[in-house]
Every structure is written in structure tokens, then in C-alpha cells.
């Protein structure tokens, strides 16, 4: 197989490819992320950023207590985040467990959200601890139920023990299942990979294996989408583009709870990967509570006074 001409699918070529990557200095990456966090985004640019961020949200519910009702409500909100203001864009997708995919798809279509995707978490999310046949079945179920996006987790155990080829092959297999039907997002659970070197390595591994998106976290582990981790991943997609002319998306998930955090993410994108990535097809934010804060900030900007949570829906 030809993986962008970067690796030939053998363990040796993968190891060589990963070894060629330059390291990441943690303190330097932290400092760069902290500097970009000082960007002051005001007035018109803030207003642009809020709408853009809304359109990038993967509105997520991943709870044991999820029900059909809860997912339907989420879908309604995803299509029309502010029922009183039709100028508010729909979110990028809803993100659910695979047993809720059919429910989500059906309800989205029902409320005029044909343009909103359904992302299914997959491959024994969140731990990734299952046999390969189970992971394949898990993914196939979601695809069959109408998922247009698959958010798979990598086997962090394999990664941390240096079995990169196992991680690679899993991604290749899931990508093959997705085919043209669904976009593949590969979740690293960066909080478990710990080092930025690992984040960079995982990014290049996943991109070569065919990921359409690389995603920080499941949302079940802290720390999740910290600014420096997203910075490192954005540098990776930027570099991968200059190597292959293909743009891979990035999805931070977990810990992005308010407008300020979201705008910081957009600044990171703008000044790292570049403005070409400032689109829902290349940048998503996995979140739940974030959407309401974006809506409140939007109201404040449009109305000129501070909003109240009473005026945004809690779904």
C-alpha cells in the first residue's frame, strides 16, 4: 500500500518515518501557546470568531445516561442553537455513542439538519481496550446506522509500548471501513500520551495511516485539549501539508468550556496551521457546555449588554 509515499506499511518503515520527526521542546511549546493566548480578539473579529466557533462545534453527549430524548434535544439544538435567532449557524456535527447514531441521524433530518453530521465514537471508546474484531464491528455498526464521521480511539497501550505498527494497522483498517462514507477522526487521548513528542509522533502516525482528522482527547481524561497540545497537532498538520499537499483536520475535545477558550483555539489555528484551517471541514471543537457560552457572548455583542443563562436553552 502507498501511504503518501511516506511509509510502506512495514514496521521498519514506520519506525524510520517516526524517528525522523524532530522533537518538541515542552517549555518552548508551552511558551508559544501562552503567548498566543494573549491575543486580544475584540469587536468584529470576536463576532466572526464566535460564529465560526459555533459552526465548528461537535456538540457532544457521551454519557452512560444518554437517552433517545436527550439525543433528540441535542440534535435540535445542533441545527438551531438559538431558536430565537436564525442567523446563528448550525454546529458542525453531533457526537454520540454508536447506539445513538440512528436516533441522531433521524432526528437531525427531521428538524432540517441534513447538513449537520453525526459523529460516532468508536473502537471501544474511550479506552480502546477491545479486540480488533470488536472494534471493527463497533465501527461497522456506526457506519450502518448512518454515521458520517467516525471518532476512533487509538490503542494507547500499544503506542506507549512502542508497538506503533499495531496502532497504525488499526487506523488503516478502520479507515478502510469508512471508505468514502465517513470521515475518520483519530483520537489520541493526549493526556495519556503525556509528552508532546508523543503527540507529534501520534499525529504523524495517524496522518500517514489515513486519518482525516486528528483529535486530542475523549473528554474522559484530564488533561485534555490543552493549548500546547493543540499547537503541536496544528504544527503537525501544517508540516504534513507541506510534505503531502493534503490538509488534515484537527479536533480539540475536552476542557474547552467558554468563548475565551474557543477563541484561543481559533488564534492557535490562525497563527499555526494558517487561516486555511479556519473552516469546519478542517477544525472542530468537541464540546457540550461551550455552545451556550458562545451563544451568550453572541447575544452580549449583538445586544450590547450581558446575557443571562435563562435566555439560552439548556439542551
Amino acid at each position: 500500500m502507498n501511504f503518501y509515499g511516506l511509509v510502506d506499511g512495514t514496521d521498519a518503515s514506520l519506525k524510520h518515518y517516526l524517528r525522523e520527526l524532530s522533537g518538541v521542546d515542552q517549555v518552548g511549546a508551552d511558551a508559544r501557546a501562552a503567548m498566543l493566548a494573549t491575543r486580544s480578539i475584540k469587536t468584529t473579529s470576536k463576532r466572526w470568531a464566535i460564529d465560526t466557533a459555533i459552526s465548528m462545534v461537535d456538540l457532544t453527549t457521551l454519557e452512560g445516561a444518554d437517552t433517545v430524548g436527550k439525543v433528540q434535544a441535542l440534535c435540535t439544538k445542533a441545527v438551531r442553537p438559538d431558536p430565537t435567532d436564525s442567523s446563528v449557524p448550525s454546529v458542525g456535527a453531533v457526537c454520540v455513542y454508536n447506539d445513538m447514531v440512528a436516533t441522531a441521524r433521524k432526528h437531525l433530518d427531521l428538524v432540517g439538519g441534513q447538513h449537520v453530521g453525526v459523529a460516532a465514537v468508536s473502537t471501544a471508546f474511550p479506552s480502546g481496550r477491545a479486540s480488533m474484531p470488536v472494534k471493527i464491528r463497533d465501527t461497522q455498526d456506526a457506519l450502518d446506522a448512518g454515521a458520517s464521521e467516525i471518532d476512533m480511539v487509538i490503542d494507547r497501550g500499544a503506542f506507549l509500548s512502542g508497538n506503533y505498527i499495531d496502532v497504525f494497522n488499526e487506523i488503516v483498517a478502520i479507515k478502510a471501513l469508512c471508505g468514502e462514507r465517513a470521515h475518520l477522526k483519530v483520537i489520541f487521548e493526549t493526556g495519556e500520551l503525556v509528552t508532546y513528542d508523543n503527540v507529534r509522533k501520534a499525529s504523524f502516525l495517524a496522518m500517514a495511516a489515513g486519518a482525516d482528522f486528528i483529535k486530542t482527547s475523549t473528554g474522559k481524561v484530564v488533561p485534555a485539549a490543552t493549548a500546547p497540545v493543540v499547537l503541536v497537532m496544528l504544527e503537525a498538520v501544517r508540516d504534513f501539508y507541506s510534505m503531502t499537499q493534503r490538509r488534515i483536520g484537527v479536533k480539540p475535545a475536552g476542557g474547552i468550556r467558554n468563548t475565551k477558550d474557543a477563541i484561543k483555539q481559533l488564534v492557535l489555528v490562525n497563527e499555526t496551521a494558517g487561516p486555511e484551517w479556519l473552516t469546519p471541514s478542517l477544525f472542530r471543537i468537541g464540546a457540550s457546555a461551550l455552545l451556550n457560552d458562545l451563544l451568550m457572548q453572541r447575544m452580549k455583542m449583538d445586544d450590547g449588554y450581558y446575557a443571562s443563562p435563562a435566555y439560552v436553552t439548556i439542551d
Binding site: S40, I41, T43, S45, K46, R47, T52, N270, P275, D302
Partner: peptide, 13 residues
């Protein structure tokens, strides 16, 4: 408010 088409940072003096 005129919303710009791209992420040009507005002046923040």
C-alpha cells in the same frame, strides 16, 4: 455589526 469574512484581528489598543 459588520462581520468580517476572515479572521483579521480588529484593533485592540
Amino acid at each position: 455589526m459588520e462581520i468580517p469574512v476572515s479572521f483579521d484581528y480588529a484593533p485592540a489598543p
